[in-house]
Amino acid sequence: MPKHQITTTINGDEVDFGCHAGQTLLDVLRTELGMTGTKNGCGSGDCGACTVIVDGRPVNACLVLGVELQGAEIETIEGMAKGRTLHPLQQKFLDHAALQCGICTPGILNMAKALLEKNPDPTETEVRYGLAGNLCRCTGYDKIVRAVLDAAADMRANG
């Protein structure tokens, strides 16, 4: 059975990949493309560790198939920093110690980025509900929420 040949844009670069019909975007990223920054926590859309952005929307990469992505624009954690400059969310996660083990961090950063694009000035409650699809077992969420609120304030101030 030949693989499907798909052309997408990942983090601004044109990327071709081959995939079987049942192969998820998560599997394509991690196995076919070696982009392991997108994490595998459950495979059922419950943990959010594989959150990436497809055509402007945050999705669980484990619940998207590679074959349906012809022409899609995909953003992953590997593209979040611009060159050697970390995204404000990445900076604030380091400043606030908003990670312990770090396995949920790429997914949370992507979800937070999507959240702030839609709502640049969220309340604590909005951040919490916005991140409800991203499990973190280490931090109790406190420092994550603070980091996102602080990054939002910075991003508003710096336009």
Binding site: G45, L63, G133
Partner: peptide
């Protein structure tokens, strides 16, 4: 139904 991520799909 589900998270924001699930909502997108």
């Amino acid at each position: 139904i589900g998270s924001y991520q699930v909502q997108g799909r």
